[in-house]
Every structure is written in C-alpha cells, then in structure tokens.
Design a protein around this nucleic acid. Structure first.
Length: 441
RNA sequence: GUGGCUGUAGCUCAGGAGUUAGAGCGCCGGUCUGUGGCACCGGAGGUCGCGGGUGCGAAGCCCGUCAGCCACCCCA
C-alpha cells in the first residue's frame, strides 16, 4: 500500500455536492432567478474577496469573529465575504452614479462564515439576495413580501409562514416603556421568545439588559398578542396610541396586510409576529422571516428587512433600502430532511446502449443527429451485457432507450424501449426524430 | 468561542481488550451470451476516522487531532 496517498477530505463545514443534490441546487437557483427577474430585479456579482476594512465591523463583533481573514501574497489584509449585503453597500457606494435609483438587484453567491457547523449551518453556503435601494416607499416593503411569498411557492413549498413585524412598532412600545436606550438588548431577548419561553425572556431582560419587571412585562404583552393578523395589529395599535413612532409602524403594516388581501395571498401564510425582531441591528423598518411549517426547528430560510442607510460607512449619500435573503443551503438541508428532493430525471431523456461494439460509430452519429434536433442523448461507453446497461439507464432516470444491432441496421430501424414500462416499438430511422418528438412531448 | 454525544464495508448499524471483524441493503459476476427492476448462487470491498500512549496483546482503554451531530451563542 502507498502511505504517500493524500487522504481525500473536505474542511469542516465545507461540502461536496453529488449530482442529485447539485441538480436540486441548480433548480432552486433557477427558480430564484426567474422570480427575481419577474419583479424587475437585475443580476450583479461582486468579488468573493474584499479588503478586510470593507467587511469588518458591519454586523457587530459576532460577524467579525466569523470572518475568514488572511494576508494575501501582496501583504494586503483581505477577507472573504460573509454575506451579500455588505458587498452590496460597497458596490452601490462605488457605482451609484451609474445605477440610478431605485436600484433593484439580485445576487446569488457563495458566502463564508467561520462558525461552528450544525445541521443547516455551514461554513460555505449560498445566499440568494434581492434588495431595492434608494426608496423609502412602503410599496417596496410590500413587494419584498410578495417576492418572498412567490419564491417559496415557486420552489414548491405550500406549508410555510411568513412572519412580519415592524421595528417602528417595537420602538414605539419601547419608547413608551422608557426603554429606547436599551432597545438592542431587549429586542435580542425578545427574538428568543418562541425558543426559550416568556419566563426566560423576562429574566434575560431584567437580569442582563437591566429593565424593570414592569417594562419586561409591557414588551412581552406586545409580543404575545394573539388573533388574526388584523386583530393583532389593531391591538398593537392601541398599545402605542399617541406614540408617533409606533403608529408609523402600525400604519405601514396595515398597508401591507391590505395589499396582501387585495393580491389574494393565502392568509394563513402571512402572520404579524411582534416577537420577530431580528438580531441584526441595522434593520429599521419592516422585518421578515420565513419558516417551514413542517420543519420550524431549522430556523428561518428567508429573512430580511428594511434599513435606513445601507452604505453610510462608504458614502455620504443616504441609501435606504429593503430586501431579503434566501438561504439556499439551509433550504436544501430542510428539503433533504423532509424528503422533498425531487427525483429529477437525469436531464437527458434518451439512452443508447452499446449493444454491438461494431456499431459504436453509428450510435455516436445518431446521438449527435438527435442532439441537433434538440434531444438530450447519452451513449453508453462500455461493451457490457445489455441488461447491465439498461439497469444503469434505469437508475439514472432515462425515459427511452434506443436499441439497434445488426438486424435493425440492415433494415434501417431502431427499437425504442420505454424504460418505465418495458414496452418497445420499432421505428424506421427516417421517422426517428418525429417519433421522439411525439414520445417526449 | 463554550459544553455534550458520535466516528466499524458504498449506506444503516451490531460487536467490544485475546486466534483470519459481522449483518442487512447496495455493488460486481453467474443462472439469463438481442433486453433492466424478481428469485437463487457466488464474489469483491474494512490498516474498526487519523496519530500517539498503556498492555503480552488495542478496533475496544487513555490522550491528542480531524470530522459529524446536539445545546449555548449567533444566524441563511
């Protein structure tokens, strides 16, 4: 044995994708692209590697710690992007004059975070972001919700819930409770409500954040309002009566609900959830999270929100925006767990077994002819028993097998075998393309 | 970054200090040399994650390391 062999292995949190998984990934990306484009979002890309100063300090200490950061061969301090939003901030600051507003872009790209991997959490994963930059209009907030909804639906999900909240509403409550200066801590605690329960949240607020028990109670009451989205919002509106900030949030959410009704989004998929606060500090308006009803434990698969000033660190120009990010790999992990991997066929419908090795050139030639007519065709390369070849074809999901030996070649015919049913028909070579068109339509 | 659990054939796992490490499924071959999925028969495939230590002896015990999973943290 050879001890100098290198052990094939991947880094922690980094993965290979086999054809089945990769086909599903590509499918998801295609769907995302289609949905984004249908709303007028334009594609962009940015480098995987940025100057560290571009990325540092944008998501708080946490994201700094998760940065893959190193010195390049030219002694530059560089880091790999950990999301697509910060690169977007740099991008818009740099290219604003060429873009014009509102600027709607989508960006599907790999990002890297050096955190401890778990199920649905990797060190390398793909995000599918879309944002609308340069407008404060609630129209864009509403459209963002529509995009998320359509995206999930087009991806083939039926049982999902979009939870929506508005930071202004929360801030209004906090102002009234005299907690404006403690909002970050309070909201972070509040975000955990579904996970750790009201008791623990109240404890965290009083113990770590420093609120009074009454203040914690006020905030929790808001988060625990129940009823239909509209009822919930009406109650919240009463809680922040007379508070301008809070009322702004309420009226924006009211518009959003009205728009959802008018657009006839299934109402059970939209929830006003006042406990959704988002850990990230930079959201200032509407916030969104998307959960799979059948797998809530995996967390949000598509999250986002409105921010006042995307690129304040890069340009004087104030750039408000709203957008969200689909976690492709997390979604894929969820689909795998739910057994939702589509049994996508090989993508190539026609299989030509190497039935008679003296006719290899004939097989290759007809395959090429059929591809020119628009069919996907694969020729088996090895001279193996026909049964084995058909087994391979079956496993790989072909629809038809084209079989021919001396008999067929001498009479100018092909056997077309339907792999799913084992039935077979004979077709003249001249009619081959027309027949395949009919069978594969 | 902190804590816990796990790592034995391609997959799911059993075993557990003492001769050549097992099962099911899968894979390959044969029965079936112009036609797959079934059945029967046969076969290949493992330095028991990797490295070190203790032992007469380690896959098993100890330490380290790598990887996976779970909780915290955070998040897609």
């Amino acid at each position: 044995m050879n001890s100098s062999l290198i052990k094939p292995q991947t880094l922690k949190g980094f993965r290979d994708y086999l054809p089945e998984a990769m086909r599903s990934r590509e499918h998801l990306m295609e769907v995302a692209r289609r949905v984004y484009r249908s709303y007028g979002f334009a594609p962009i890309d940015t480098p995987a590697l940025e100057y560290s100063e571009i990325l540092l300090g944008k998501g708080g200490d946490e994201s700094d710690k998760q940065l893959f950061r190193f010195t390049d061969q030219g002694d530059r301090d560089v880091a790999m992007r950990f999301d697509l939003t910060v690169p977007l901030a740099r991008f818009t600051a740099q290219h604003l004059s060429e873009l014009g507003t509102p600027f709607k872009r989508y960006h599907i790209g790999t990002v890297w975070r050096a955190e401890k991997p778990q199920k649905g959490r990797y060190r390398e994963f793909v995000q599918c972001d879309f944002d609308t930059i340069g407008t404060t209009a609630n129209t864009s907030d509403i459209e963002t919700l529509f995009v998320i909804h359509d995206l999930m639906e087009q991806l083939g999900f039926e049982r999902f819930t979009l939870r929506v909240n508005h930071r202004a509403l929360l801030n209004g409550v906090l102002e009234q409770a005299g907690l404006a200066d403690k909002s970050a801590g309070v909201l972070r605690a509040l975000d955990k409500l579904p996970k750790i329960g009201r008791q623990s949240v109240a404890e965290e607020m009083t113990a770590s954040v420093g609120t009074t028990a009454d203040q914690a109670e006020t905030v929790l009451r808001l988060a625990e309002l129940s009823g239909s989205p509209q009822e919930l919002l009406d109650q919240a509106g009463q809680l922040v009566q007379g508070n301008e900030t809070g009322q702004l949030g309420v009226s924006r959410l009211n518009e959003l609900l009205a728009a959802c009704r008018k657009a006839e989004l299934p109402s059970e998929r939209i929830q006003i959830d006042l406990s959704i606060a988002r850990g990230l500090d930079y959201y200032t308006g509407t916030v969104y999270e998307t959960f799979l009803n059948d797998l809530p434990g995996i967390g949000s698969v598509c999250s986002g929100g409105r921010y006042d000033n995307l690129a304040g660190l890069f340009t004087q120009q104030k750039l408000p925006g709203v957008g969200a990010s689909l976690g492709l790999d997390r979604l894929l992990a969820a689909m795998e767990e739910l057994g939702l991997f589509e049994t996508v066929p090989s993508g190539v419908p026609v299989f030509i077994p190497l039935f008679d090795k003296n006719h290899v050139a004939d097989y290759l030639a007809v395959a090429r002819r059929l591809r020119a007519a628009g069919f996907g065709v694969e020729v088996f390369p090895d001279d193996r028993a026909l049964g084995k070849q058909l087994k391979y074809a079956d496993r790989k999901g072909f629809t038809l097998a084209l079989i021919a030996g001396d008999q067929e070649f001498s009479s100018g015919q092909w056997q077309i075998k339907h792999l799913a049913t084992s039935t077979q028909e004979t077709v003249a070579d001249a009619d081959l393309v027309a027949t395949l068109k009919r069978l594969l339509a």
